[in-house]
């Protein structure tokens, strides 16, 4: 048999065993495909499991892994087991992910492989990053890769839509392990969303809704309510305060108040 044929079979994901299989010609190397490694490898599957897996595949419709999900679904439906939707809640899941970088990242996560990509920095410079991918998460409408940045020598968070190039396996392959107890959601929360600072804001009644997710009421002053509000990202917090115009006024801390006043003066420009 030709080497090329064997390679083709391996490309198809079919495991082959090579060896002298013919008892009469023991110098003739043959190969064979074991039925148990060829056939679907999920063991016993029930009707409701088929239903769940179908829903899981269905959630990819039109998104990044749609093709892989569809072919998986075809294989499952070929088992001849009818889906049992009885116990499954009526839901219509839909994963939102169209980035072409999604699949390479998922593969790298599965294989624990270092990856390279170009990333847009804050000042719109492109930087080459080499990262050991630890986890992937979706939060507030964006997908984030959390990984160990080899050049920064630190744990970093990357937004997928800010990647400027194809994600590729890094030629500087390193073997890495994911730290025990690594929890992608925890890292994301603590790096991006956990309030580390507090401010006192005067907010017009019935306004400022989006600022008040993590807040408590301190007192009532006429048309306004004084809140204590926690925040994690100073820049974003200031942006949001300014967005609300005269409905949200900073009381403390003083430096925050000063910065907002400074920016309002810039914005007021000719009207001063």
């Amino acid at each position: 048999m030709f080497e090329r044929d064997k390679d083709d079979l391996r490309t198809l994901g079919i495991e082959i065993e090579v060896g002298g299989l013919d008892p009469l010609f023991d110098d003739e190397a043959g190969y064979r495909i074991r039925p148990d490694s060829y056939a679907l490898n999920l063991g016993e599957v029930t009707g409701s499991e088929i239903a769940l897996l179908s829903l899981a595949a269905e959630s990819w419709r039109g998104a990044a892994l749609g093709d892989a999900a569809q072919s998986a679904l075809n294989k499952l439906l070929s088992l001849g087991i009818s889906s049992d939707y009885e116990s499954i809640p009526a839901i219509a899941p839909k994963l939102l992910m169209n980035s072409e970088n999604f699949l390479p990242i998922i593969r790298a996560l599965a294989d624990l492989r270092t990856i390279d990509f170009d990333y847009i920095s804050k000042d719109l410079h492109v930087e080459k990053r080499t990262v050991n991918p630890f986890g992937l998460a979706n939060s507030h409408g964006y997908w984030y890769l959390v990984g160990y940045d080899l050049s920064r020598e630190d744990l970093r968070v990357f937004r997928l839509d800010r990647m400027q190039s194809q994600v590729a396996p890094s030629p500087n392959m390193a073997i890495f392990t994911v730290p025990e107890n690594f929890d992608v959601q925890n890292v994301l929360n603590s790096q991006l969303f956990e309030p580390t600072m507090v401010a006192q804001l005067r907010v017009r009644k019935g306004k400022g809704f989006s600022l008040l997710a993590q807040s408590k009421i301190l007192s009532d002053i006429d048309d306004f309510v004084l809140y204590e509000v926690g925040f994690s990202n100073r820049q974003k917090f200031i942006d949001s305060i300014l967005w609300h115009g005269d409905d949200v006024i900073v009381q403390t801390p003083e430096d925050l108040r000063q910065e907002v006043v400074h920016k309002l003066r810039l914005l007021a420009g000719g009207n001063l």
């Binding site: 994901g13 079919i14 039925p35 679907l40 595949a57 999900a69 075809n74």
Partner: peptide, 25 residues
């Protein structure tokens, strides 16, 4: 007999299930 699931297919199903998990009680 259907062929065994490929790696990408398995990953797609894993992610899909992870996602379902959050919507089921």
């Amino acid at each position: 007999r259907p062929r065994s699931l490929g790696r990408d297919e398995i990953l797609a199903l894993i992610l899909g299930l992870e996602y379902l998990k959050d919507q089921v009680s």
